[in-house]
Amino acid sequence: MNWIPLILTLKLALVTTLVLFVLAIPLSYWLSITKSKIKPVIETLVSMPLVLPPTVLGFYLLLAFSPQNVFGAWLENWFGIRLVFSFTGLVLASCIYSLPFMVQPIQAGLSGISSSLTEAASLLGKNRLNTLFYILLPNIKSSIITAVVLTFAHTVGEFGVVLMIGGNIPGKTKVASIAVYDEVESLNYSLANQYSIVLIILSFITLFIVYMINGGHLKRFTR
């Protein structure tokens, strides 16, 4: 079996999870405290990838990133970045596609914290950043772990978006889910089977971790 697609899948899932973690904390925090009128709009946009067929997202990203189009051409001319059929493009698309899996648990965790904790911190003279890092985030550890694991698992299971904008370039954009498809197309059933089994085990382990945490079985590690 060729391990490269599996390693690529893990690499994509890891990078996506890291990037989303950094982005989702300010976004979730803002969503949890804001009284702005545009909040429902932002929440809707964040959740869109949950209901949209991945091919739709992939299709528009493909158009946007294509060097034939204004945005894609601008990226290529100014920064020398080409997002279609590249790993960077995959990361960007995965981030959009997995955004709700990172944002929603963290936002729910933050909203669930008693407002008196934040108020107590502000009376003690702590600014918002201090309160976020010393009070809020440490108290939603299990939400954060859920968000991270789900994002990772969801990115591993990605297919449509990756196929649309990544294509099928070995070592660059051919992730495990694409490899399965590819092997089936060429009637290599046993190879497809091997990739699939690894993916099943991987998904089982990640989801199992989430349920162990949420069921309180790993309590001493999460608080």
Partner: peptide, 28 residues
């Protein structure tokens, strides 16, 4: 609020659950 030099005890105590009693005091 922080400039008003007020000590406030909340009805639900509002102790920070991630910190020990001593860390709660130290944080303040």
């Amino acid at each position: 609020p922080a400039k008003r030099k007020i000590g406030y005890v909340f009805q639900d105590y509002a102790l920070f659950p991630n910190m020990t009693a001593y860390e709660n005091l130290e944080f303040a």
